[in-house]
Design a protein around this nucleic acid. Structure first.
Lengths: 213, 213, 213, 213
DNA sequence: AATGAATGAGTTTTCATTCAT
DNA sequence: CATGAATGAAAACTCATTCAT
């Protein structure tokens, strides 16, 4: 579709040299490039120059699209959390069975996370940097909702007897949330070829049944 | 012996103001301070000035003790890996039962990790930075040995029927190793008061049996 | 062509305020300024701030144009050696007479050297610094070619009887090369007004005939 | 005589634990070590730590013997110039023949210079550094006397017909003085085995007769 | 939209020097 | 005499950001 547009533009006007990509597309493309670098090296370790080079422009030119490096980070992080929370909410809304809810949370998380590798790396690597800034206050808010969702489902599962009664819900939440985030942070190259499905299934099996035969 | 000497000096001469603290102690103290900061903010995000300030000296003065920031990192990382590998080796040497070996690896890891929080944070946050430098080549070597140890025990467990035959040993290793490392990265303040033992038990229970009742 | 364009722009549009000065001109200007300082104080003794101040900018701004102080040095030194070697090669190619070849080498050297005072000072003052670095390996290579050229001409001159048979070619080369470089290192202010020609003539007369009447 | 003193001290007092090497010997030894390093790398490029390491002590300990790095330089430079001037004065006093006087100056210089390689390197490399400081004002004074001596002899030679009448005395002085200093700056390793005598003879022959057959 | 030049505050590191022990 | 810890000023370099063109 992008091509369609550019062909059309080129056809009529006949003077446009750099056709395609209107403003918001260009912007999205830059966020994408930045995100890839953030995922690879972390937010702080990635320089504005790195991003500009990846885009084939000079670093100063980035400031036509964003007013700061942090606003790129903001865009990535808030999009991620919106997506995560939407998944959690619909997972909880979809069923009354805590085990199914958790299974759904895991599945939705996995899908969401694979779309937001950069955001996760940023949270893991540079949490102390972001969480200290008022601008990123929504990070804490969102994390609280995530925790609440898990704990609620685990507690309900304990009450209905689906989960072991001796589980410490908050402890298990912390472990599970972080466990869930692990595969996302694996570099593509190092994954030895596991598909997302394989990883999710392995993870679910591990969570519910352990490794014992 | 150092204590003996200082007590004696203090007793007889009565002039010793600073209670001993010889050269290597001072150095170790500085490494400790640096490590705390690295654990909190990551290696790159911690400045030499931060470390010096924590020690109550000027940044340049640190170079009396270390020839670079990296050499502090080196000291922390290599001590950590030496410790981890020693634990793994003795765990494997202590038993023939793969399940016991893994249990032992987990227990030794937990003990080791709590002594080396800084190192772990550094590996997680700044792996791309360190692993790119020849100086830190031993990181890759050590990680390979760690992987091999896990995979061997898991495979043997599968053969003897202790573990499920359908486990993907490398996948499970990756998950388990990272899972094991999770609690260490939790900030003390955020742990809501879990003791190391509680965490280890929760973890082992989770690994072997899952969360299902 | 660049000139064409700018003239055209200036002519038609009449808006161009700064009379061209494109990127590479600015860069060349900075190299020139740096070279003057290097010639005056030596490479190591000249700080990046010195250079920046001479250019009326801040020291960090220099890194927009060069990626290190050494790369400025590199530019100056390699340009010098390229020039010297070109002169030597064409001197040798221009004649079969060793005496004429040497005379030509001296004349070309003098011309070259006056254009590269900075480079010469750098080689004399900071040779141990540069020659220790792989990056400046070409310095040794070039010096070898220079030596070979001199020695060859001197030897041929001895065989054809133009030069005294008892000359130690390498010793004379070392003396002559260094002698040749002397006047260049004289500060303009101290030269008491000798023209280049006067110096060259004095030098040649000295070389060929000595000071005796 | 120095030994006499220290033996005597040891004999009478009987408490001196590190016998030999009294204070001034130790000091002279340190100056020697420092000089070697200055000759090799230049004054500024040599660090106080370098010197201390060469002496097997810590950098701070040097300040028991000298109150600053510059005072070491001072010691080396003033000793050199005293020596040079003494040689020049006795050369001039020894004869009425300008040619013999110059020959004697050359011979005395060569002897002096070989004893003061460090000083010469320091003057050549770091002249701008030293000459800018009031403390080293004697450098300019001494250089003036050196120039005067040469010029006088050359002028007298021109009048008596020993030297060519068209010599520019100051120009020739500048050339000859610098020429004379050249071989001293040659690294021992690079000299390809020329003895001091060979070099002096080569030089004198070159000066008086040129290279022409 | 993009360039290219620059800023300014910050980074790691170096080094002569001081001083209590 | 020597050590070991520290200072403080300066070095080279980095980087997010600004802005005229």
């Amino acid at each position: 579709m992008v091509d369609q547009a550019s062909v059309w533009q080129g056809g009529i006007i006949g003077l446009v040299t750099t056709p395609s990509k209107n403003s918001s597309e260009r912007r999205a493309h830059l966020v994408q490039l930045a995100g890839d670098l953030f995922a690879e090296k972390g937010f702080r370790a990635t320089t504005v120059r790195n991003i500009a080079e990846a885009a084939g422009i000079l670093s100063g030119s980035l400031y036509h699209h964003f007013d700061s490096k942090e606003s790129i980070g903001d865009e990535i992080l808030s999009a991620f959390l919106d997506d995560v929370l939407a998944g959690y909410r619909s997972a909880v809304a979809s069923t009354d069975d805590p085990r199914k809810a958790i299974e759904e949370i895991v599945r939705s998380s996995t899908a969401t996370l694979s779309r937001h590798r950069a955001a996760l790396t940023m949270l893991q690597n540079d949490w102390s940097y972001f969480s200290a800034q008022p601008r990123f206050g929504y990070l804490r808010t969102a994390m609280k909702e995530i925790e609440q969702t898990w704990v609620e489902q685990l507690e309900r599962g304990k009450q209905t007897g689906v989960f072991r009664a001796d589980l410490d819900a908050r402890l298990v939440y912390r472990l599970l949330r972080d466990i869930l985030w692990i595969p996302t942070s694996w570099r593509p190259s190092k994954g030895a070829g596991w598909s997302t499905d394989e990883i999710v299934d392995g993870l679910l099996r591990l969570l519910f049944d352990g490794i014992t035969a």
